[in-house]
Design a protein around this nucleic acid. Structure first.
Lengths: 156, 156
DNA sequence: CCGATTTGTTATGCATCATAACATTTGGCC
DNA sequence: GGCCAAATGTTATGATGCATAACAAATCGG
């Protein structure tokens, strides 16, 4: 068994066998790869996810975006501000509910999303090459399971 | 197949089938569970990993901690400051290399690490219950593969 | 109609990560 | 031995992500 002893190098204290630690490292590596590949208007994973959800759900309210992406309402404001000032997203006042805004992609927003989706596909393909198609499918299923930790209040 | 159509709910734009997005969500969930379980002196995953590495490698230099945990030297300074002001870590000047510091756990640092390791074991056990023992092993191996993205400069 | 809730917003704080610059010290090399 | 490159710890600074509290306006329920 790989006990990660210290042979001149540093003893990793079994950190590399703990899910939380490895999740963090992998996430940083994957995000760095995503960011390195993106050269268009959409630069960061967060922006991309917001743009993608709005693109698939035209007229969505900010609250629903927050619910879908697990973002706090307060934090989405600046994000939409940024996307709007880049000319990618429109914030239209809803006529049926004057509290909420209806979010839409502009023409250039749709183009930006399209471009981002393509480079994202390359990024994803690279990961598939690394894990294998079946391996990636298994990984996604396990990550989904881990997300359930969020709901369950420690039962003991 | 689960095409994640929008049936009253919000269309997730296939985000839930992308490794980066799901990695992020899972990492947040796992970290939240870790933090919720920790009630001792060690509260956050970063602190824990630093403490664990120092505990297994007494006399380690800051630079080596940085190398092991993929932390920037500049950012470790404040982290060690915090652990030192909590009385968990000592920063001794090295006699062989007067540039570097030799890091050690204090008595109470060792106790804090011990306590953190125990609650961390509960946390990890909960994850094992969720994924299964084999599933967790597979997950760790795949996460390790993803970490290789950090080294490889996009080859095409 | 009135109280509770929802929605967007502002302000604020904290944690994490990154870069640049600097002084001190070490090491390699001629 | 002396000099230049590299390593080490440090400071300063900025961007990002995430969280909470409080607020006004609007909606909803009874």
């Amino acid at each position: 068994m790989p006990l990660s002893k210290s042979i001149g190098a540093t003893n990793m204290a079994n950190l590399d066998q703990q899910v939380g630690y490895m999740l963090r490292q992998a996430q940083l590596a994957v995000f760095a790869d995503f960011i390195a590949k993106q050269r268009g208007a959409v630069l960061r994973p967060g922006q991309f996810s917001i743009l993608a959800v709005i693109g698939r759900n035209p007229g969505l309210s900010q609250a629903r975006v927050c619910c879908a992406l697990a973002i706090k309402r307060a934090n989405l404001v600046a994000a939409i501000d940024a996307l709007a000032s880049l000319g990618l997203v429109r914030r239209d006042a809803s006529v049926t509910d004057r509290r909420s805004n209806r979010l839409h992609l502009t023409q250039s927003g749709q183009r930006a999303l399209q471009a981002a989706l393509e480079t994202q596909a390359q990024h994803e393909a690279r990961i598939t090459r690394l894990l294998g198609s079946a391996g990636k499918r298994v990984l996604l299923k396990q990550l989904a399971k881990l997300c359930e930790l969020r709901k369950t209040r420690s039962p003991e």
